[in-house]
Amino acid sequence: MNKASNESKYELRVQPIENGTVIDHITAGQALNVLKILKIPGTSEGIVSILINAPGAEERKDVVKIEGRELKSQEVDKIALIAPDATINIIRDFKVIRKKRVKIPNFLTGFVRCINPNCISNSNEPITSRFEVNNRCGKIMLRCKYCEKTIEKNIADHLL
């Protein structure tokens, strides 16, 4: 198969959207977790297209297209925890009007469950989980504000 037919096949799969948000350069395999973080479906009624293991410039990537909804920076920044290289493209009338990279937040509230079953945040007390986010050379580590236990891998497994 030549390059041209490869590209056209790719184009068929990834059609441009008129209005909405395209999240590009998601770490391969993380698209469904991105949707889980963004609580989609549930907060969006438009068409959502997902591309998993798409060929990228250097390595494979996932892409999510959400039609009819422009995501706000603070909601998409959370996806940086599992897809630190993701870019957010806001589309209006088929054109990219704004493009930015996700930024790892310093704190997370009510977003991740503490891995420590004996942590007070996992009890019937009226509190929400809180984590401090540490980024050591690209390695993300969450530290529970209450019990100080850390989550260093498989963050997506602990989403609330």
């Binding site: 004996n118 007070i120 009890s123 504000k145 209450y146 019990c147």
Partner: peptide, 23 residues
């Protein structure tokens, strides 16, 4: 007995909380 209980207690208390061991 719960870890992090003193940190939570401090959020609800207007007087100082001293942790004497949380789990």
């Amino acid at each position: 007995p719960k870890e992090g209980s003193a940190r939570m207690a401090a959020e609800y208390s207007s007087v100082p909380v001293i942790n004497a061991g949380d789990g």
